[in-house]
Amino acid sequence: MHFTRRETLAMGAGAALLTVLPFRANAAVDDLIAEFTGGAELADAGVELTAPEIAENGNTVPIEVSAPGATAIMVLAAGNPTPPVATFNFGPLAASQSASTRIRLAGTQDVIAVAQLADGSFARQSKTVKVTIGGCGG
């Protein structure tokens, strides 16, 4: 196999781009969290995210979020083309600040839940979900 100088340069540029891309994706998630929290500190305790360790089908991954006393919970999928998944706002008649739903995951990635607690502070929890078949078409 022979590579011309031009091809080698192109491959090098492609490889450099690939290593940079994951950092960009994380930056988008950080921006979204900062927008939700207003830049406040994130505690580890206070929000519970239940997600399967291995999801066979990325089109419907059952998840459950729960944060006692929370006013809002935001769910993000760090590895999706569009990271936001859903934001749950709980009203005065919510008996428990928990909800379950089904989400799409493009591939193996971290699912993040950020909750705004009753005292105005924020908590986050993330879970890694292994996805066998991605759920974003293609």
């Binding site: 749950f88 706002n89 005065p92 008649l93 919510a94």
Partner: peptide
């Protein structure tokens, strides 16, 4: 009276 209000994105199944 509100119980729950969910904002949904394309990542919902």
């Amino acid at each position: 009276e509100n119980v729950v209000d969910v904002t949904m994105e394309p990542a919902i199944s």
